[in-house]
Design a binder for these strands. Structure first.
Length: 225
DNA sequence: ATATCGATTATCT
DNA sequence: GATAATCGATATG
């Protein structure tokens, strides 16, 4: 019996992303997002994604064609599309499908695995709350950890992902300061729900979660796992 | 425990 | 000038 986290960690290859957005969104559940920063590695496991289908998806940024902002989506798969929203937050997507199509997957939540202290500092969460030793009640620790990366804006803040630094970054290379990888973990159950926070095409079940994960966005119990 | 609302700015009409 | 793939604070039961 090998613990999954001790298996080899391999970057996801370009072809992983050269598929339609729904397949990629489902396949990304359980994969790792890794951020190298000043010799440290911050890591989280993806527990929540959304698929955006490209020019035919009214809710997608690509819906009205190529612009300066969304140009990455029309390029090769496996690259970061980072945008700024609501005057406050960044959101991280991975481009997918073939070049010229504009599908992508929004990464909405992670289970933090390593670098929790650094994430807490970046998020303005008291570091002690997130560490096992100091925080006695397990529940309060888990509530603090959940604040780190349970939402698209939160995870970008925790990992220091901004548009200026990471838009267009190749996420398939272990040499990148930000990349995606497989450690052999396989989620038990996957659920599909409508996407969050959109007006158009709001009913399509294009949000995917690892069923029952405590690290999903939104309040626990809401947004059916 | 749940609901509502304000912040703050890039982008598009 | 309106809107947005959000978050956290505040109000209310």
């Amino acid at each position: 019996m090998t613990h999954p986290r001790l298996q080899a960690v391999r970057p996801l290859p370009r072809r992983f992303f050269e598929r339609d957005a729904v397949k990629v969104a489902r396949a990304l559940l359980g994969k790792l997002l890794l951020r190298r920063e000043r010799g440290r590695v911050l890591a989280g496991r993806i527990v929540e994604t959304e698929a955006y289908l490209g020019v035919n998806d009214a809710a997608a940024h690509a819906a009205s064609g190529r612009t300066a902002r969304n140009a990455v989506l029309f390029g090769p798969a496996g690259h970061a599309y980072v945008y700024f929203i609501y005057g406050n937050h960044y959101c991280l997507n991975v481009s997918c499908m073939l070049e010229g199509e504009a599908g992508c997957v929004l990464i909405r939540a992670l289970e933090p695995l390593s670098g929790l202290r650094q994430m807490a500092r970046a998020r303005g969460v008291p570091v002690a709350e997130c560490t096992a030793l100091e925080a006695r009640p397990l529940r309060s620790r888990r509530n603090a950890v959940r604040k780190l990366t349970s939402g698209p804006g939160r995870l970008c803040q925790a990992l220091g992902v901004t548009r200026a630094r990471f838009n267009g970054c190749d996420l398939t290379s272990a040499a990148s300061p930000l990349h995606l990888a497989d450690d052999g973990f396989c989620p038990r159950g996957i659920a599909a729900t409508p996407r969050i926070g959109i007006r158009k095409a709001a009913a399509e079940p294009l949000r995917f979660v690892i069923a029952g994960s405590p690290f999903l966005s939104g309040r626990p119990g809401t947004r059916e796992t």
